[in-house]
Amino acid sequence: MADVNGLDQAQITEITEPVKEFILETFLPGEDPSALEYDTPLISGGIIDSISTLKLVTYLEEEFDIKVQANEMNADNLDTLSEITTFVISKQ
């Protein structure tokens, strides 16, 4: 896993791993965890739809104690695990 915006590996893993687990459990039951990669397109790839995106945001807000604006809930910020991680860190 590459560094994101100069953050260290541990910080990234702390966010990425639980998010990945949440997405697998909630939206992709039964999927092989290794199939969900750091850059798998979630919204533009049809893996999560708009209602699922709302669920993901609710989860991110509760889990990482951040506040997400309505205009931020889109594929620009949340399309991949990598983008989600960057987004969460920028909000903390």
């Binding site: 199939a35 533009s44 049809g46 893996i47 739809d49």
Partner: peptide, 21 residues
């Protein structure tokens, strides 16, 4: 039998509103 692979395949061949849940 990957859900991700299947959804990705659909999104490449169909509009997103047609990708199965």
């Amino acid at each position: 039998k990957s859900l991700i692979a299947m959804k990705k395949f659909c999104s490449e061949n169909l509009p997103l509103y047609m990708v199965p849940d």
